[in-house]
Design a protein around this nucleic acid. Structure first.
Length: 184
DNA sequence: GGGACGATGTAT
DNA sequence: TACATCGTCCCT
């Protein structure tokens, strides 16, 4: 239930499974205190379910990169892709390799650059590799509850054609009414 | 030690 | 549809 108050999402929220969190995150507020305070609204996410999900990095097992995903929920998982872009993820579940990728946000205040794609939003908000493995229960990056969106669309995930039978799993969610959902 | 390969974005 | 560019994974 949404009472119009700005309530920081807590550990219980993040400990739910990735699919539930991914869908619940649509419409939530993202607050970043990197350089300056920036407020945005999440409009597109993807769920990565764990080691059994071939599109999920934790399917590689416990490695230096994936160890954050195998740790407690409510932590950031930030990694570099194509040597160029950083991807911002949220660890969910119960230390079992789950995460949610934030694919697009809508600027609410103090954001100039485009945020309609996973690489673009990290650049606009200043999220880099140095923000990997930090708690979302502190103040650098955190989320607040918000009014539920009108209509959430579910589709298959983007850019994971290598993931065999997981390629078409309906694990991408976006706000039907947002103009900031990623292209492709 | 080294090669292949991306949860992308932009320009052609 | 070409390609930039580098951390990570795995040794093809």
């Amino acid at each position: 239930m949404w009472f119009g108050e700005l309530i920081k999402l807590d550990k219980d929220f993040y400990q739910q499974d990735a699919k539930t969190v991914a869908k619940a995150l649509i419409g939530k507020r993202l607050i970043t205190n990197i350089g300056s305070k920036k407020i945005s609204r999440i409009v597109e996410t993807e769920a990565y379910l764990g080691p059994h999900d071939l599109a999920c990095h934790s399917a590689k097992g416990l490695t230096t990169r994936t160890k954050v995903m195998f740790g407690p929920a409510a932590k950031t998982y930030v990694y570099l892709i194509y040597g160029i872009h950083t991807m911002f993820n949220i660890v969910t579940g119960n230390s079992d390799g789950q995460a949610v990728l934030i694919r697009a946000v809508e600027p609410v205040s103090l954001i100039k650059a485009n945020t309609n794609g996973p690489g673009k939003l990290t650049k606009a908000l200043g999220i880099g590799l140095e923000h990997n493995d930090i708690s979302l229960l502190n103040n650098t990056i955190y989320l607040e509850d918000a009014k539920p969106v009108n209509k959430i669309i579910t589709t298959s995930r983007i850019g994971i054609d290598y993931a065999k039978e997981w390629k078409d799993a309906p694990l991408r969610f976006y706000d039907f009414d947002s103009k900031f959902v990623s292209k492709r």
